[in-house]
């Protein structure tokens, strides 16, 4: 099984169990770099796939929570190289990991080295929010050469023909952004969410996970009827920020 197939398999396994796959997101090294690995260990017991946010200086697709966590982690010295080293030392978490990173830190790291380190540390795929498909040839081929997945985002603003193209290109899962907006919104999920997710799911042979604005059990349930998984980001980062128990929060979502 290639790395990106491990991601899809983990999502299917949850669905086969009768559950919506849960994909918790944390910003690496936030609130404290020292707690990174133990936090991952904790959320890996509740999540089917775990998403690690790489802090960036210009998080233009993110709302206040992830901006704040990003800037704070950078201040405390968190870098992609450090993250890989920590993952390597930890020696695996029992679930596939995916990284969410803006392009520039990946570009600076070097795509070949990126693929190599990912494979060594259990990272199976990448989500790059400022990289549209048209600009992605180079990183895609570096990742695919190692069986790693480049996960495509689709949004309610994506026209149908493009949606089909992105679903076909995506590896691991398709990231269906629930809203027309940035992360961290608390305006609730849109009314036409069901038909949008049904459309994406019908077009994709890869499992579809929905993210942005998922904060509570009702959101996970709403998404779960029309997609394979739910991604929980800002709400979890806020739990960690307040020093609360992430396990309790994640189990409350089920």
């Amino acid at each position: 099984m290639t790395a990106h197939e491990r991601i899809s398999a983990a999502i299917h396994a949850a669905n086969d169990d009768g559950r919506t796959a849960l994909v918790p997101f944390i910003t690496a090294g936030y609130p404290e770099p020292g707690g990174f690995v133990s936090t991952l260990n904790t959320i890996a017991t509740a999540g089917d796939v775990v998403e690690i946010g790489i802090p960036f200086s210009d998080p233009m697709a993110d709302g206040m929570t992830i901006q704040r966590s990003s800037f704070e982690a950078l201040k405390k010295g968190v870098s992609l190289a450090w993250i890989f080293d920590e993952l390597e030392k930890a020696g695996g978490f029992g679930v596939p990991l995916v990284m969410m990173s803006y392009l520039n830190p990946l570009l600076a790291f070097g795509y070949d080295k990126l693929a190599e380190r990912a494979l060594e540390t259990g990272v199976c795929g990448f989500i790059v929010p400022d990289l549209p498909f048209e600009e992605s040839d180079e990183i895609r081929s570096a990742l695919e050469a190692q069986g790693l997945g480049l996960i495509q985002l689709v949004t309610p603003a994506t026209p149908d023909a493009r949606l089909k193209m992105l679903c076909d290109a995506s590896r691991g899962f398709v990231y269906a952004v629930t809203i027309t907006g940035i992360t961290g919104g608390d305006v609730g999920l849109p009314k036409d969410l069901a038909s949008y997710l049904d459309k994406v799911s019908s077009m994709s042979t890869t499992p579809v996970c929905a993210g942005f604005g998922i904060r509570e059990a009702a959101d996970v349930a709403a998404v779960g009827k029309h997609a394979s998984g739910a991604i929980v980001g800002s709400a979890l980062v806020e739990v960690l920020e307040r020093g609360e128990d992430p396990t309790a929060f994640l189990s409350s979502l089920r």
């Binding site: 697709a61 929010p129 990289l131 549209p132 689709v154 603003a157 027309t180």
Partner: peptide
């Protein structure tokens, strides 16, 4: 046609903005 000045330029934007 891809918005490049030699190697420079291009369009690195979130998917939501691609149609815009």
């Amino acid at each position: 046609e891809r918005g490049r000045f030699g190697p420079f330029g291009g369009r690195y934007v979130p998917e939501t903005l691609v149609p815009a």
